[in-house]
Write a protein that binds this DNA or RNA. Sequence first.
RNA 1: GCGCUCGUAGCUCAGCUGGAUAGAGCAACGGACUUCUAAUCCGUAGGUCCCGUGUUCGAAUCACGGCGAGCGUGCCA
Length: 608
Amino acid sequence: MLAAAGKLATFISLPYHPVMAETLATLLAERLNETLAKSSFAGDLPEGFRAHVEQAQNRQFGDYQSNAAMILAKQVKKNPRELASEIAESFDGGTLCDKPEIAGPGFINFRITTDALAERAAILLNDPDHLGVEQATNPQTIVLDFSAPNVAKPMHVGHIRSTIIGDSLSRVARFLGHNVITDNHIGDWGTQFGMILWGWKNLLDEKALEADPIPELLRVYREVNAKTKEDESLREECKGQLVALQSGDKENLAIWEKCIELSKIGLKKIYDQLDVSFDHWLGESFYNDQLGPLVEQLVAENIATESDGAIVIFSDGTLSEKEDPFLKSEDGEIKPQPALIQKSDGGFLYATTDLATIDYRISDLGADALWYVVGVPQQLHFDQLFQISKRRGQKADLQFIPFGSILGKDRKMLRTREGETVQLADVLTESIERARKVIDEKNPDLSDGEKHEIATVIGIGAVKYAELSQFRMTDYIFDWDTMLALKGNTAPYLINAYVRTRAIFRKLGSDFAGIDSFTLTADAEKNLVLKLAQFGETVPTVLNDFRPNGLATYLYELATTYHKFWEACPVLREEGAVRETRLALCELTGRVLKCGLGLLGIRTTEKM
RNA sequence: GCGCUCGUAGCUCAGCUGGAUAGAGCAACGGACUUCUAAUCCGUAGGUCCCGUGUUCGAAUCACGGCGAGCGUGCCA
């Protein structure tokens, strides 16, 4: 693909982008393209070329920059620097920016005028709901699959990633105007129920269950799990329990139902604490009666075939060997790598359930897109799943949003079955306690209720921000101090910036009263307005490659810019227009921080 | 064997749809609190962006080939 064509594609319409958001960058790009269209070399431009303007990488060069001259130089047969100055010369920035400057090999640098910044600030102030973030012009119905823990086992730190990333993506997509349906596809029917059933019947302490069901369920699960490792015959017994359940045994079904019910109570407690909610909890068992007919249908359509007693799906040969997820290369030979949808004993597999789930989400929930926030080890599974869906003629946009692992100190995956796992609930409790200690030290005069509330917001926020501020694919080693850090680039830093915006109005004794126009004088003010205006350029990019950490980086920079403003620009000691302007900037910063943190699923407090 | 993902400062990580001198935080060192909240700010120091080749006016970023790590690769999910 040509570089120019690639740029064109990203500029015009990524699937979940507002098409022409009005931001400083797009306003500049429009003017730049007008300039190009009127230029002497307009006829030499590549078909459909649109110049791109982006935020300057280094503010010493300006606020925005364009590389258009360097991209076009060859095709227009001009020296890039000369071309750049020709463009700059005829560029009409109006009141938006000063005359562009040329630098380096042919960069065109733009500096936004103080008037334009003031105007931008006023626009943001009058847009309290969206704060300059344009709504998608092509709203999609998106079913978002995330979290999806197994029931009967409490969530451990490994579930943090899917849960927090998925929740944030759902908030961002909704904020952009998409119709998002969140679905917690819990593992409520898998093989683990064999063990749970046996344990329930043989190891359960009824009194303990009555007193506090979740730990008792965990104890039983762990004990059975340990026993099966040493005892072959017990594994068979567990399997028997599972078969009985699946063939409708009344007693086992009753235990199963009770078990799900109790587990959900435990899960909901954690989701409440995390401020995460779902529109649906359609677990694996919801699809039980659709699996048989689905397999029959796939066989009838010649998509699936019998092999070694199992029903499997092979390659249909339409993809190249390299791209085909149903083929693998072994010792130089191409071998089949089928997806199994029914075992030789008649049992179904998760590929089967996932196919049935796709059907339901498309036909009953009306999904245009399905997003799965699931660990990267499942890449092959989703490659196959999506390919099968395509073969069945389904049109929904299917997105696998993978994330890396949380490792133990030995750099191995943290796993439930090997014991030594850290429970999610414990992480949250510890985090809140650590926040509480800092509050007791820094602000001892707050009431106990306030301290508790603030510690909760900061503790939970710290855990979420630690996750969302890094790229989702990065593996990381679980470490209390890293995950629960309260200094530096962390949730408390961002929340502190918000608290400072509120402290001003508390001192003032009244809420923000509005302002007619902005009078920007100090550099720190202009820097702050520019940053605020870029909220609208940042939020849509989160869905570009499903990277909430881009928003986290933006918010961190905004908080830093505000803290600098705070140091440099007294507010209440000033008078007149300067004071009014600074009050308005505090108000605006508070709104953007609160909104942006909200998109990450992080709450704010008035004091800390 | 093959596939996927990762490899950036002492540590933890950004940056990867190619752009200018590769950025933060932590840790270390030096400064700033009669204050609108110092959970802050200012400064110093810290780099073969795993290695090599290629594409390009330009590569941490793209392609190819290595090296290293983790995961996956037909009856678990």
